[in-house]
Amino acid sequence: MSHADYLTPDLITRALTLRDLTDPAQGPHAIQVLLDDIVGALSAEWRSTVRYVRDSPIVPVRENYDRLGYEPGDVTRARRYTRYISSTVMLRSHTSAQLPTALERYGERTNVDELIVAPGLVYRRDAVDRSHAGEPHQVDLWRIRSAPDTDDRDMLDMIARLVETVLPGAEWKVTDVEHPYTVGGRQIDVLHGGEWLELAECGRIHPHVLRGSGLDPERWSGLALGMGLERALMLRKGISDIRYLRAADPRIASQMLTLDPWQHVSPLPLARRDISIVVAEEEDEETLGDRVRVALGDDADVAESLDVLSRTAHDELPAAARIRLGIEAGQVNLLVRILLRPIDRTLTSEQANALHNRIYAAVHVGPVMELI
C-alpha cells in the first residue's frame, strides 16, 4: 500500500474523539443499559466472574487479523474494508482484536470461569443508509474456562439466554458459519417484524487462538460471541434510523437513556439529489459511503441514504456519453440517489445544494464537473 492508502492525522483524530456510547465515563446511554442486562444474564447463568476489557482502538494489524487466524490474502484485509494507519497499525475492525491479548493473563490460573466483555467502537467502510454507520459499536462476549469440555450445548444455552435478554420472547434460529477464530461457528437470526434478521455470531474458541495466548486446548476451552450493539438496541426499542442513537434533539436524546419502546418523532423534510458520477469500476456502495462520510465530516448525519440506481461500464456507454463524461476504460458511470434529511434541524435548499456539491466532488473522478 502507498501512503495515500493510510488515514490522515485529521481522520485519526476524528475517529478517536468520537463518543463511545458503550462507555459510562462518556455519559449514559441505552446501549449501556442493554449491555449490562446481557452481561448480568450470562454471568448469572454461568455463575461466572466478569472482566471488562477496554483497550485503545488503535491496534497492530497482527492483533486484528493474524492472531485471530485470518489468512494473509483474506479479502477483509483490503484497504477498501480496513482503515489502516500504517502498514502495521490500524483502527480495529472488530472488538475481537482485544481478545488474544486478554486471554494471555489466564495461563497460570486455575478454577477459571470468566466472562470477558470487550465493548467499544469499531471502524469500517460501510454503506450510507438508515441501518449502517462507519463507526458502529460492537461487543465481544467470550467465556473462558479452565476445562476442556465447553461444547455446543453450552453455546446453544448462551444463545437462548442472549436472545431472551435482548428480545424477550423472540423466535430464533442458527445457521452454520465459519470464523477463523472459532470452531462450530453459528449465525444467530431472530424473527422480528415478520422477517429474519441477524443478531450476532458465535462459536467455540478455536484451539489455535488458545495456543497463541499461551493456553493449552487440552486444559482450556470457551465460547466467543460478537454482536453489533446498534442493531440489538434498534430491534429492542423499535428504532428505524441508526442516526437517532446519537441525536442531540431532546425529543430523541431523552429516549436514548432507557430500553422503553421508541416513541415516534415526526421526521423533518427530505431533500433528494440525483448525481451522475464516474468512479473506478471496483467502487461499491460501501466505499462510496465511506467517501461521503469523510467528505461531510460533522455533517455526515445529514445523509440519510445513498443508493446506486444504475451502473454502466465504459464499454456499454454510447460514444457521445463517453465524451461528455470523460470516462476512461476501467471506470463506470453510476447514477446515485442521495437522500438528505437532518434528524434535528431543518435543511434549506441552498444547504442541500452545498452538501450535494461536497458529495459530488468527493466521489466523482471524471474531468467534467456538474456542480449546482
Rank of each mutant, 00 (worst) to 15 (best):
Y6N: 04
T13F: 09
L16G: 05
L21R: 13
T22L: 04
A25F: 02
P28R: 12
A30Y: 03
V33C: 03
D37Q: 14
D37A: 15
G40S: 11
S48A: 13
V50I: 11
V50M: 02
Y52P: 02
V53A: 10
D55L: 06
S56G: 06
V59K: 05
V61M: 07
R62W: 06
E63P: 01
N64D: 03
Y65R: 04
L68Y: 02
G73C: 05
D74E: 10
R77Y: 00
A78G: 05
T82A: 05
I85L: 10
S86V: 03
M90Y: 00
S93I: 00
H94T: 01
Q98F: 04
P100T: 04
A102R: 03
L103M: 04
E108Q: 14
T110F: 08
L115E: 07
V117I: 02
P119F: 06
R125P: 03
V128C: 14
V128R: 15
D129A: 08
R130M: 13
S131T: 14
S131Y: 08
P136C: 04
P136M: 06
V139I: 12
V139S: 06
W142D: 13
A147C: 05
M158F: 15
I159K: 06
I159W: 09
L162N: 02
L162E: 02
E164T: 08
V166D: 04
G169R: 02
A170W: 01
E171D: 13
T175Q: 12
P180S: 05
Y181C: 07
T182M: 10
G184N: 11
G193F: 01
E195D: 12
W196R: 04
I205E: 09
P207S: 03
V209M: 08
L210G: 05
G214R: 02
P217W: 05
R219A: 12
S221K: 07
L225S: 02
L225T: 00
G228W: 08
L229A: 03
E230V: 00
L235K: 03
I239E: 05
S240W: 11
R243W: 01
Y244N: 13
R246P: 00
D249T: 05
R251N: 03
M256F: 04
M256T: 07
L257P: 00
D260C: 00
P261W: 09
W262N: 08
L270D: 13
A271H: 15
R272G: 10
R273F: 02
I277W: 09
V279G: 09
A280S: 14
E283F: 05
D284K: 11
E285S: 15
E286M: 12
E286D: 15
R291I: 00
A303E: 09
D307R: 14
D307A: 13
D307V: 15
V308T: 11
L309V: 14
A313T: 12
L317H: 02
A319T: 11
A321R: 12
R322S: 06
I323H: 13
I327Y: 06
I327E: 09
Q331L: 04
V332Y: 09
N333C: 11
L335N: 13
V336I: 15
P342D: 03
I343S: 07
D344W: 05
S349Q: 14
S349T: 12
S349W: 11
A352D: 06
N353G: 13
R358N: 08
V363A: 07
V363M: 14
V368T: 12
I372R: 13
